[in-house]
Design a protein around this nucleic acid. Structure first.
Lengths: 215, 215
DNA sequence: GTCTATATACCGATAGAC
DNA sequence: GTCTATCGGTATATAGAC
């Protein structure tokens, strides 16, 4: 349905809209995206629990009350952020290329799409991947992540069935190791360096499917 | 110098010593290991910041003051825990097998050793891997982790130089993807299941070095 | 060594002025 | 829509009795 790159561009555009300009808006306050960007950045830096509304207010150059005018509370910010992250991953599975062709090609497409979402929405996905599931909101996001993982595991199964992937390792273990590699990207990749998003995706696919050894 | 398995066994023995028995001890209060086990478990469950001394006291069946008698504060518990985790990984590099033979064999030995430490000290390494570096203690642990990663990156370089590993992907990226896969183990592996520690290490090495594709 | 009680500070969230 | 002031609650850490 939605292209992950297009989704990321739209999100980036809305978040860079800034706090100036005060025209009327449909239903959302103007700069909730800016608040969310600041919040996610702080959540990743200090952890969700350790990030106080006061810190967010300070970074936004405003007061606690001003934030409470826009969102109903700290958990609201978390919910919005997690929805964006997991929504991006889910969108990959809805793309046409994830459903046509042989299983290995579909799996590689999903891997590439996941890498793109990780890079494009890096702070948001970082937040998602570090969840512990202590609140209802976090548990809902983790449940959606499990559903995503399950869909990928099915792809792995199909690729094994068609003879593309090795069958000597449990499919669940395979999926977890594969996404362990992919998800670790949020811990070190930063855009703007020598390694582009597409090159990173190429490398991940080369290592994961081809292995580290020279062939 | 120290075998990681032996280290883990000693740690497990000391931590299971329990809180009974009140004989004299050399210099440490008797059950600091028990306090540490409880603390690390809680830190992983709620996050370090969100874990209060009150919670620890409750889980230990004692009072806050009793904990403060044993440790100087919450950060002290964190420091002890992180030292155990990173110490276990560093010990792998000191083993003889990490220094003899061809580079690929040495790299595979380090990978296997790291998996063993992750499994044997799972809660401790989990804590280490989720650090954000907001306190001096955390930054010191992260610095030691960087040194460890650097040593592994050198091994990767040597394995490439000897022609064992593929050279089309940056060595630093290779190392990060490799350890991304390894480190993800703490997010899903639980001992006691069908997958043993050594089988897991075999799978990691098979996937990382051989790739997912059928050969 | 462990306890209760408390000091001091900050938390999330709200009230009400403007 | 943003502000200051404040509520009730909890945090780390300590004092001092036992």
């Amino acid at each position: 349905m939605t292209d992950p790159a297009a989704t990321a561009e739209a999100a980036a555009a809305s978040s860079s809209r800034g706090r100036s300009g005060n025209g009327r808006v449909g239903r959302e306050p103007y700069d909730i995206a800016a608040v969310l960007d600041i919040a996610v950045s702080a959540f990743n830096e200090f952890g969700y629990d350790a990030t106080s509304i006061s810190i967010l207010a300070e970074r936004l150059g405003t007061s606690k009350s001003a934030i409470y005018y826009h969102v109903s509370g700290k958990e609201d910010l978390l919910r919005l952020a997690l929805d964006r992250a997991i929504g991006g991953l889910e969108a990959v599975l809805q793309l046409e290329e994830a459903s046509v062709g042989n299983a290995e090609a579909r799996l590689q497409f999903v891997v590439r799409g996941a890498v793109r979402v990780l890079v494009d929405d890096l702070p948001y996905v970082t937040l998602l991947l570090r969840l512990r599931g202590n609140t209802e909101i976090e548990r809902e996001a983790l449940e959606r992540r499990r559903t995503f993982d399950h869909a990928v595991a099915i792809l792995v199964d199909e690729a094994r069935a068609e003879g593309s992937l090795r069958a000597d390792i449990d499919a669940r273990t395979t999926t977890r190791l594969l996404f362990g590699m992919i998800n670790s990207i949020v811990d070190w990749y930063r855009s703007g360096g020598a390694l582009t998003r597409e090159q990173l995706a190429d490398d991940v696919i080369a290592v994961a499917f081809g292995g580290l050894e020279r062939r």
